[in-house]
Each structure stands twice: as structure tokens, then as C-alpha cells.
Computed example of a mutant assay.
Amino acid sequence: MKNMGFIPSSSTSVQRYAGSLRAVHWLRALVVLGTLAAGLLMVNLPDEMTVKFEQLYPNHKQFGVLALVLVLLQLGLRWRRGVPALPHSLQPWERRLSHLTHGLMYLLLVLVPLMGYAMSSSFTQSDGVPFFFFGHLPELLPKNDARFEVFQLLHRYLAWTLLALVVMHVAGALKHRFFDADADSDVLRRML
């Protein structure tokens, strides 16, 4: 039988994700949480603070692009390597909720940065989207402040929805780790 990129855990029958998937997962998690935090901080700072436009906005943009690159890499690795099955001890509703939450998170992990890019690209006063040592990414949309407002609204609400899903994801993992009686329900071990 093909290994499918995951490894059995030494203590129980729980299978772990491949090391490459675990590494990308935790790196992406840090980048996404940092980008969300920077976004919340920068929109609440007064415009007079130079750090807002000179550091926070450019870094929010480039780390948003990095988050998109990492999620696309993660999706490619998941497709190529496979993922371990959920533990049999999970209830049917927990399985459905897990699949729904993961699916929506991956969708939003792609859409939120794309809406941010579209927002920056269409804003008439935007200075573009920097991406570390690559310089600025090309702006593919025409400048249009009315469209910018739509993209801004979508970016904001989708980011809040993503944050809510991340909280659900973490709460579910902690619930299975600390409150389930069956040790095989500890899905967090699959990603450690």
C-alpha cells in the first residue's frame, strides 16, 4: 500500500501529516495570523502615523501575497502527498464540520489575498503591491475607486470570516486534545 505522505504516530493508530505538509501548515499559520494582526492594527491607526503607510501597509500586502503562495503550495502538497483519514472515533457531525471548516478555510485563504490584491490594484492612490526582493507585482486591474470599495468590503468581511474559521479550527483541535475521552480523537497530533 502506498504511504500517501503521512506517517503513523508512534503512540497510537493516529496517522500524521507528512513533514512537508506540517512545516507549510505552521509557517502559513504564522504568516496568516501575523498578516491579520497587522491588518487590524493598520486600519485602526490614525493616518498621521507614518508607520501606517510606510511599514504596515507594504508589509501587510507582501505577507498577504506570501500567505497566498504558501496556501497554493500546501494545496499542491495535499493533492500530491494525500492526507491521513480522520480518526474513526470522531462523530459523523464532527467529520462533516471538519470537512466544511477546512474547505471554507482553504477557499478564504485564497480569496482574502486575491481581494486584497484586487483592492490595491484598483485603488487610484495605491503604490502597488510589493513582494520582498521581487519588487512590485504587476497591477492587473484598471484603477477604479468604485471597484476598490467593493474589493475593500469583500477583503474585510472575508478576512473576518477567515478569522472566525481559524478560531473554530483551533477550538476543535483543542477540544479533541483535552476534552475527548478517546485518545485517538486527538487530531492535533497529526499536525505536530
Rank of each mutant, 00 (worst) to 15 (best):
D186Y: 00
A183F: 07
S122N: 11
E139I: 03
L163K: 04
V167T: 14
L73G: 02
G39M: 06
L108M: 05
R156Q: 12
A85E: 14
A23M: 04
A37G: 08
K143T: 03
E48A: 15
L56F: 15
Q74P: 00
H169N: 04
G64I: 11
G64T: 12
S89G: 12
P92W: 00
R156I: 11
D180I: 05
S185E: 08
L109H: 09
G39Y: 09
A67W: 04
L104G: 07
V43H: 06
T101P: 00
G116H: 03
Q15F: 03
L68Q: 03
W79A: 15
R190K: 08
L174S: 07
L86A: 13
T161I: 11
L114S: 04
L137M: 08
F132M: 07
M4F: 15
A85M: 13
T50N: 00
M42K: 13
Q55D: 10
L174Y: 12
R80K: 15
R81E: 13
H176A: 02
L109P: 03
L21Y: 02
P84E: 06
A23V: 00
D182C: 04
F151R: 12
L72M: 01
Q62R: 06
V187Y: 06
L27N: 11
Q91I: 07
L27W: 15
T12V: 02
D47F: 14
E48V: 09
V32A: 09
G76Q: 03
L41M: 14
S126E: 09
L66V: 09
L188E: 09
R28F: 05
F178E: 05
Y17K: 01
N59D: 10
Q62A: 06
A85H: 12
R22L: 01
A23E: 02
F179S: 14
A171F: 14
Y17S: 00
R95G: 06
Q91A: 14
L72P: 07
D186I: 05
M168K: 09
T35C: 14
H136R: 15
S9P: 05
S121C: 06
K143M: 12
A85I: 03
W160N: 14
L107R: 02
Q91Y: 10
L72N: 03
D184E: 14
V69Q: 11
R28L: 10
F178A: 02
K143D: 00
P8W: 10
M1C: 05
R96D: 01
G5S: 02
Q74V: 02
Y106F: 15
R22V: 11
M105W: 02
S122C: 05
M4Y: 15
M115W: 11
Y17N: 00
L72K: 00
